[in-house]
Each structure stands twice: as structure tokens, then as C-alpha cells.
Design a protein around this nucleic acid. Structure first.
Lengths: 153, 153
DNA sequence: ATTCCTGCAAACCTTTTGCAGAGGT
DNA sequence: ACCTCTGCAAAAGGTTTGCAGGAAT
């Protein structure tokens, strides 16, 4: 899903952040990082915990929550929220941005990117005098022909 | 915030829905409807409950939750979610659509509408073979010059 | 040695649900 | 009469926090 260099770049960025903040590098953080990037994107804490437990039993969910916040603070993860009541995370790719299409039948998540939409957004911000920080743009619908949907929720 | 006819249209739509579904019209539902439209938009359950309690003490929060779901089902309210951990509701205006700008300093919510963005969205859906149901488009940022912000959270 | 981290359990918050009685049709 | 609604309290589901022991620096 993501090229190998991505994990390495993230690992370095995380290490830099950890040093800069006087934090510590731990076995758990390393393993959560690997599991997170292996998952490829849009993982929930629950899913991530399951993955991590396969390799290192005993890790508590609190650690996943705390670590994901660390990853967000370190700038290597994005927090997402698709209305299913769970916070999801995806690896942050430098200089890359995309929004999402979510299938209501199968919960599959597609990614899209549209320069024209981005530009219009900037215009809207100017018109309202708002300095944009980030945005969230999600389109919900049904992929394919309903029944032909890969799988359903 | 909203012209008077809007409440009346909603009241009628709700009554029609209630009759059609064999439900019942109650004092609480009437009062929640009034409070909801008086609030003007983007209300949380908590805020709404506070308003309702002023006129009719004793109403429980469960009733607000149940009633707001009814309003959504009846097509007179929209459910929104701006990441502050509370579900918010706004009156649904027939044939009207808008998205939101949210100030991170004062939590003020602005509304915008951009036909070009809407059209590009449709294109994106076509490209991915997704039949759109609804979407969510929110831009987060800082309004004015920070300190000049009308009020802060 | 010091300071941060972890795992556990309990706390928290918003939302949902079960139930008995009140209220609408 | 029947069946829906309400209010209360309890439950549920996801996330956060306090704490004592363990690990990293």
C-alpha cells in the first residue's frame, strides 16, 4: 500500500520528535509504528491493537491511544473520522493531500484529489476572511451497483 | 436566523410524517421543535436541552436524542459533526445546501456554498463509479486576526 | 538516578436502551 | 383500549486518566 521508504521516513521523523521533546523510544512504539504502516491506512485503534497483539501480547489499548496521539503530534499520522464512531488514522505522506469517498454499503474507502476543488476552497476562505488550517471533505455513497459491492458492512 | 415560514413548513412536514408512521404528537415534540428552530442551527443536544428546560422543566435528555432522530427521519433536521465530540443539528431547508467553515479560535460556524465545488464532486463520483448520497465538507481555520475573533471557545 | 512509559482498572462522556407509568389516538 | 412516549436510571461504546511498577536515558 505504501512504499517502504515511507515507514523509514516516518521512523526518522518520529525519532527526531522524540529526541526533541525529551521522550523515550520504546519497544511498544516501534511495534505500533510498524503495525500502523503495515495496515496501510484508515485503521481504527481496535484494528491496530489486534495487529499489535499478534506480535507482542500484553499491550494495552491505552498505549495505542497514547501512541497514536504521539504519532499525530510528531506529524507522521493523520486523524480521521468517518462517522462510524471510531477514530481512524492514516500515515501522513509529505506534500500529499487527498480526500475521501466512502461506500455506505461496504465501508470501503477511496481516496481522491482535485486541484480545482482545492483552489475553490482557498477562494472561499479568502471571501470569508478565514485562514485555513485543515479541511475535511468526504463523499458518502454507494459504490458499483449495490449488490455488486465487494462486501457489505 | 431563519424566516418564520421555515418553522411552519417543518411543523407541517413533521405532522405529516407522524401521521403517516402512526406516531403521536406530544407536547415535548412541539416544544423541542420550537426550541430547535429558535436556536437557528448547529445546536448540540446539550444546548437544546438547556433551552427546552427553560420552558418545560423535567424533560430528559433521552427525549431530546429520540426526538432529534425523529426530526432527521422526518426530513426536517440535518445531523452534523464538527469533531468536538458532540453531534449537532441544523434545520433542513428545502432545496438548499451548504457546507461549513469552522473557526478554531471561537468555534464560530460560517456557511458557504460553491457550485463549482459541487460540480467537481459529481465528476469525482462519476470517475470512481460511486453514487453519491451525501457529503461533508468542512474547512477549519482561524477567522479574522485571532485576537479580533468575536469570542473564543 | 531520574524521568518517561506501560498496563491495568477506573473514570469519563456522549449516546442508547429497558422499563414502568403517563399520555395520545 | 391500544400502543406510543416519556423520564429515569442503567448500559454501552469509545476514549482518557490515575497510579504503581518497569523501562529508557
Amino acid at each position: 500500500m505504501h512504499p517502504a521508504p515511507l515507514v523509514e521516513a516516518a521512523r526518522q521523523k518520529l525519532q527526531a520528535f522524540i529526541r526533541a521533546e525529551g521522550l523515550k523510544q520504546t519497544r511498544q512504539r516501534d511495534e505500533i509504528l510498524d503495525a500502523f504502516f503495515a495496515a496501510g491506512g484508515h485503521v481504527s485503534v481496535d484494528e491496530l491493537l489486534r495487529d499489535v497483539l499478534l506480535r507482542s501480547p500484553g499491550v494495552g489499548h491505552a498505549t495505542i491511544y497514547r501512541t497514536m496521539r504521539l504519532f499525530v503530534d510528531a506529524g507522521i499520522a493523520h486523524e480521521r473520522n468517518f462517522g462510524d464512531g471510531q477514530t481512524r488514522y492514516e500515515p501522513m505522506v509529505p506534500d500529499e493531500h487527498h480526500d475521501h469517498l466512502i461506500c455506505l454499503d461496504c465501508n470501503k474507502i477511496f481516496e481522491f484529489e482535485d486541484p480545482i476543488i482545492e483552489e475553490r476552497q482557498a477562494q472561499v476562505c479568502i471571501r470569508w476572511g478565514l485562514t485555513p488550517q485543515h479541511h475535511r471533505h468526504e463523499i458518502y455513497g454507494r459504490c458499483q451497483k449495490g449488490a455488486a459491492c465487494p462486501n457489505r458492512a
